[in-house]
Structure formats: C-alpha cells, structure tokens
Design a protein around this nucleic acid. Structure first.
Lengths: 305, 305
DNA sequence: AACCCGGTTGAAAATATCTTTCAAAGGTGA
DNA sequence: TCACCTTTGAAAGATATTTTCAACCGGGTT
C-alpha cells in the first residue's frame, strides 16, 4: 500500500528536463541525509556528475551505490542511468544560458541596489522553476473542476491567505462564486456545506498546516473536488487532494524568508489557474471583466490635471 | 592562429559538443556501410537514439553492438556510453532553441502549457523591468524612514490591499508596528493620528485611487513621512508623497488584467523595502524572525511522511 | 573457375556498470 | 533500557557495454 503510494508520487512527475534543480529543492525535505548529499552534488554540478558512474558518484558523496540509485528514483527517474542522461542534457542547457553573478545570498551589508538585483533575480528564478515543475495535467484537471464549480472555497493562513484572497478576488471578477477563508473555524464550518460539484482549494507551502488541512479534509469527505497548492507534494495535505499543484521551494537565507519565494510561486500557480478558468468560461468571463473595470473607474480621480 | 585547434583535430580526442551532425557528414565517406547506417540514425534523431541502449540502436539500424561501438569511437568518443551522453546533451540543446513564441498574448484557445509558459515569462519580464526602473535613492530614503518609524501605516484597496497586507505581515515579523488599512474611512481616521516620525505608505497602481490618496494626504498634512508605490509617477498620489517608488506597467490583454503584473511589480518593491528595513534593524530583526518561525512550528502536523 | 587476402561484420565471451537484496547500524518513542 | 522502525551500504544479481575472434564478403590473381 505505502509502496504503491510512493510509486505513484514518483511517477506523476515524468523525467524532468531542466526543472531538476527545482525538483531537488522541492524534494530535499523528504530525503534522508545521505540522499540529500547526493542530490546536492547533482544539483550543484550537473556536468561533473554526468561524467561519473554510480560508483564514482557514490564515492564522491561518501555514500553507496544503493543510495545514489535511490536518489535517482526519488527524483523521478527509473534509475541512475536515466538521471545521468538528464544531467548531461541539463549541463548542455546551462552551457548556453549565461549564469549571472547575482546568485549570492543577500547579506546584511549589501547596498540597496544589490538587494534589488538579487531579489529580482531570485524571484525570476522561482518563477522559472515553478513553471518548469508545474504538472499541466493536474493543472488542467483543476481548471476544469473550478470552471464548472457551483462554488469555490479557498483555505490559506498566514502569507498563503493573501494568495487565497488574490485568487478569490480574481475569480469574483469573472463572475464565479468564490470565497477565501482565513479563520480556521469558519473555514471548517463552511466546508461542511460543500458537496459534489463544489471545489475546495488549500494553499499551504509546508503542506502540513493543520488549519488548512482540516477544512480541506472536511470538503473532501463531503464529496467536493479538492485541490492542494503546496510546496511539499508528499505532505499530509495531499492526502485529501484530488489534484496537487506543486510550487517551487527556493533556497532561503536569514534575511530572505522562505515565505517570499513561496508566495511568488503560489501566485504564479494561482494566476495560471485563473487564466485557465477564464478561458473556459470566456463567454461570461470577458463581459464580467469589462464590467468590473468600468465599475471601478469612478474610484479614481478624473484626470492627472 | 585564431582558428580553433580543438575543432581542427576533432577526430582525435575531444568529445564533440553540438557539432555532431557536421562531424557525421565529414566522416561519412570514411565509414563502412553499416557504420553509416548507425551514424545516420544518430544524426537524424539524437533525442530518440539517446533513449536507446547499444543493443537497441544495433537492432534499430539492423547492425550489431560492435558496429555501434565502432561508430561511436570513430565519432571521437571513448565508447557508446559517452556518445549517448553527448546525444542527450545535444537533444536538450536543440530543445532550448525553440521558445520565442511565448511573447505573444495569451489567447482564449491557448493550451494550458502555453498559458503557464507565457505567464511565467511575462512576470519575469515585469520583475526585470521593475528592478531596472526602481530608483535606489528613493528606495534608500524610504527604507531609512521606515526603519526608524514609530509606526507604519499602509493604504491600499483592491488588489493593492493584498500587497499592503503582505508588507504589514512581514514588518510585523521583524517587530515593527505596522498596519495595513483597507477601509477608506478607517484609514483616514487612523491617518489623523500620525505625526512626524511616523511613516505612511500608499499603494496604488493607477496613482489616482481616491480611497488611497485621501489618507496619504492626511498623513502628509500631519507631518508623517509619506511614501507612494505607484505605476504612475505623474499621478495625483505623488503630490503628497515624500518618496515615490515606481512600479512597472506591463502590457495587458483581455484575459490578462493589468492587476496581475502590477501586483508582481508591487510585491518586488515591497520586498526590497522590507529587506532594506530588515538590514537596518538587523539587531532586532534577526531574533524576531527566528522567534516567529519557532512560534509557528506547532501549527504544522508533526510528521510529514 | 578456384583461390587468396585485406577489410568488414556480428555472435558470444569478458568486463564494466547498474540494480536489488538483506542484514547491520542508527535513531526514536515507550 | 528495550523494541521497533528507518536508514544505510556490502555484496549478490541483472544489464549494458566492450572486446574478441571467427565467419563472411568482394575483388583481384592464377
């Protein structure tokens, strides 16, 4: 049983081409120590690792062949051989794209201009990783469910609540009935009302925020279609999710909390979800968008005289 | 002597990068019949061949393993294994050469994968534009004011309110007193309380949202340091702003409302502001960040696996 | 035509590489 | 502390690659 589950988790993400570094970061928390060492080596020097045999890589990382193979499996490849091929591809890919020098962590004494550059670069990277790692099949399924939903409930607390509100705002603009819940009690209270044909969306970076999992579980039990937007596709929240949308996990530093890049990543996913829904409900979405724009016009001062 | 030595001696030791097709053509005449068949297959479909084992390629070309290895040697690789790695790299390289179509607008009938790519690309572009257009002097001044402020009030409505909340959340995490106001009446009511040494931040993409301008004006009149984060540096809001931080305005389409990219841009500015403040208040910010992280830990379920 | 000979080819053995198994080491909670 | 579960690597087992070597082919000579 557990074995089957693991298998399906690995299988749902087909051999990644360029999203490897992102995937390593996403999966790192669920790895054991030695596997992390291997993953680190692989992400750090794809070209170098591509030149190594299992034995070589095992020695380099101070682990065993078995661990190397296990890591390759966790990253979604059938075995080390295939990981190695992907690595070679990645290396070639990196060769063409220039790697800028702003990759360093943000330090306390960085001048403000550096902060801007590094932050912008990091967020761009996060976007690229997220896009590369997003499962379009899952996304498509989520879009289909949301587009035809009777109502859409969204759960998120902390930084994720803002993402939930953003989505709710946008969905409301195209005439869909959606609500973002922040209060865990009210969220559960509302979730009880859901039934088949409704959609519930949980947003949690950690994948293990109880305040968000609980309402999603209730919605799941009531027969609603459930969607999880999380950075931990192996986290508890996915238990109750019909569709899982994975956000990327960027490296964080002391000054740059993880919330920052997870938010960027979540927003991209949410935007994609929104656009997808807008496409499917174009007939009603387009006029609704235009109308909401019109309605807001008088809230602005007439003209910059 | 500018001519590349490596290239002229390519037949010998160095493994070919991407010039494989050319090399095949050059060396074809000196190949035997079955080797030509192998070389042809390899040059014709690098990606496909990279997926095959020696035996597979031998069968595909109707030859033997030995011939495949011989061909690999002739092409300059130590053996088939290395040819295969090069092939994988070549395939990835070719793959990357096609992506200029993402610059187009998002259409109603775009497949979901295109939506993801275009959206990610657009938001990356927005980030780059914002970073390039941000006035670091103004930012520095804003940071200085915020870092020493008695309290920080933030005004934003609609999509911008989420950005304001995001900033308030983060500032709270490093121990600063800040509040994000959404209700225009309450915002004004609170603004009246401000005085010199306080900071007021208005966030509005259009630069002319009355609900946001009004409280900023009040704060300005009361002597607080005022900051405007806007996409229209010539808009009415800047009248009452001591420091103006400009966000970028990306082109929008019917399906992609301006709110999307303005939000991305605003968030980057807000993040920069936050990091800047965190740097200046590092002594208190660092422990506060750590503490808030600790406090949240128990809100997650203990074991993710 | 029959024969020889250098070059070409593939079957199978030899080797290298990858994968699986399994028991010991390490850690965790009762 | 002990029992239990997880993690780990050594070695056995399975595949893939390389090498070996004898058969084969084609053309020129007797």
């Amino acid at each position: 049983m557990t074995h089957d589950l693991k298998e399906s988790f690995n299988a749902d993400s087909p051999p990644a081409p360029a999203a490897l570094a992102a995937k390593v970061r996403t999966l790192a928390p669920s790895m054991t120590r030695s596997m992390q060492r291997v993953a680190e080596a692989v992400a750090g020097d794809p070209a170098g690792c591509a030149a190594l045999t299992v034995t070589g890589l095992a020695e380099l990382t101070g682990t065993s062949e078995a661990t190397v193979v296990r890591t390759a499996r966790l990253l979604g490849y059938p075995g080390y051989r295939d990981l190695r091929l992907a690595l070679a591809g990645l290396a070639a890919h990196q060769q063409s794209g220039r790697a800028p020098s702003v990759t360093a962590d943000i330090a306390v004494d960085d001048p403000i201009a550096d902060v801007v550059a590094k932050l912008a670069y990091d967020e761009q990277q996060t976007l690229a990783d997220t896009a590369a790692g997003l499962d379009t099949v899952q996304l498509g399924a989520a879009v289909a469910a949301a587009a035809t939903a009777r109502r859409i409930d969204i759960y998120g607390v902390g930084a994720s609540s803002l993402v939930g509100q953003d989505l709710a705002q946008k969905l409301a603009r195209i005439g869909l009935i959606s609500h973002s819940h922040t209060d865990p009690h009210l969220a559960v209270t509302n979730a009880v009302q859901l039934r088949s044909g409704d959609v519930a969306i949980a947003i949690t970076h950690s994948g293990s925020t109880v305040d968000v999992i609980e309402p999603l579980r209730v919605a799941f039990d009531r027969g609603a279609t459930t969607i999880a937007i999380t950075g931990r596709p192996d986290g508890p929240v996915t238990q109750y999710a019909d569709h899982v949308l994975t956000t990327s996990t960027a490296r964080e530093s002391e000054l740059r909390p993880a919330a920052m890049s997870s938010r960027t990543s979540q927003l991209l996913v949410v935007d994609c979800l929104f656009i997808g829904v807008a496409q499917r409900t174009y007939e009603t979405a387009a006029p609704a968008l235009a109308a909401s724009y019109e309605a807001l016009a008088h809230r602005h001062t007439p003209r910059p005289r």
